[in-house]
Computed example of a mutant assay.
Amino acid sequence: MRNTRVVLALCILLALGACSKFRTYNGPEVTRIVVYKGERKMYLLHHDSVLATHDIDLGFAPAGHKQFEGDGKTPEGRYYIDRRNPNSKFHLSLGISYPNPDDIAFAAKNGRSPGGDIFIHGEVNRDQRKNLDWTAGCIAVKKREMEKIYAMVGDGTVIDIYP
């Protein structure tokens, strides 16, 4: 009887662990993220080797570089992963260091705010979306993919976003 309880307890713990959104990763370090907006692809790289490829959704106005708050564009250029949000309303998220000093200066010169809070995050349910590109400027992937990305990518990782 005692063995049955121990086995049952272990099964429950394993099942709960399998349901967790927090995963572990023991592979090569992700040294860079590359996003090609036009292809709707994101690549996680270890130097020149591709570790993972993901299909992405973008801001609701995907063409061009983000310039102002509310423009619906995903930024272009070199940024960094600068924060993590384990409690994101989009499952999990990794913050992108937009706006940089150039983005801030451009917006200020035009009397506008550059916006902010740009993330890589999980997606909403497909039936809740109206369009392929639906974010306010973020990069979205499937929730299960975001779990892997969250485990693989560290703070300070370079992210290059191309048109």
Results as ranks from 00 to 15, higher is better:
58 L>S: 03
64 G>W: 02
35 V>P: 02
30 V>A: 10
160 D>G: 03
72 G>K: 13
107 A>K: 07
52 A>E: 14
139 I>S: 00
160 D>P: 03
156 G>C: 00
19 C>F: 14
129 R>L: 15
33 I>R: 03
161 I>H: 05
117 D>M: 08
50 V>Q: 09
112 R>M: 13
96 I>V: 15
87 N>F: 14
85 N>Q: 02
162 Y>R: 14
76 E>W: 02
138 C>M: 05
102 D>V: 11
75 P>F: 04
135 T>N: 04
84 R>V: 08
133 D>R: 08
102 D>K: 12
129 R>K: 13
9 A>Q: 10
82 D>V: 10
23 R>L: 14
145 E>P: 00
4 T>F: 14
96 I>N: 13
109 K>S: 12
44 L>K: 04
34 V>Y: 08
22 F>T: 08
37 K>N: 04
122 G>M: 03
142 K>P: 03
30 V>C: 07
125 N>I: 05
84 R>P: 09
23 R>G: 12
20 S>M: 06
18 A>I: 10
75 P>Y: 03
149 I>A: 01
3 N>R: 13
73 K>L: 05
133 D>V: 08
146 M>S: 07
146 M>H: 00
70 G>W: 11
143 K>F: 01
113 S>N: 12
59 G>D: 01
106 F>W: 08
80 Y>W: 09
141 V>H: 03
16 L>A: 15
11 C>D: 05
23 R>T: 06
19 C>P: 05
31 T>I: 06
110 N>D: 04
154 G>Q: 07
97 S>G: 09
62 P>K: 02
127 D>G: 08
22 F>K: 02
83 R>L: 03
117 D>G: 10
41 K>D: 01
30 V>I: 12
86 P>W: 03
91 H>N: 07
51 L>W: 13
59 G>M: 09
29 E>P: 08
89 K>G: 06
155 D>I: 13
96 I>Y: 07
32 R>E: 12
101 P>E: 15
138 C>S: 06
11 C>P: 01
79 Y>N: 01
33 I>W: 01
35 V>G: 06
162 Y>A: 11
17 G>W: 13
87 N>C: 07
84 R>D: 05
13 L>V: 14
75 P>H: 06
162 Y>P: 06
145 E>T: 09
3 N>E: 13
92 L>S: 02
145 E>R: 10
15 A>L: 11
149 I>L: 02
117 D>S: 15
115 G>P: 01
138 C>V: 03
4 T>E: 11
157 T>S: 08
96 I>K: 07
45 L>T: 01
91 H>F: 11
88 S>E: 02
24 T>N: 07
108 A>S: 09
10 L>R: 09
77 G>K: 01
155 D>T: 12
128 Q>I: 00
151 A>S: 12
135 T>A: 04
10 L>F: 08
2 R>K: 15
38 G>C: 01
11 C>N: 13
13 L>I: 14
161 I>P: 05
27 G>V: 05
18 A>G: 13
26 N>T: 12
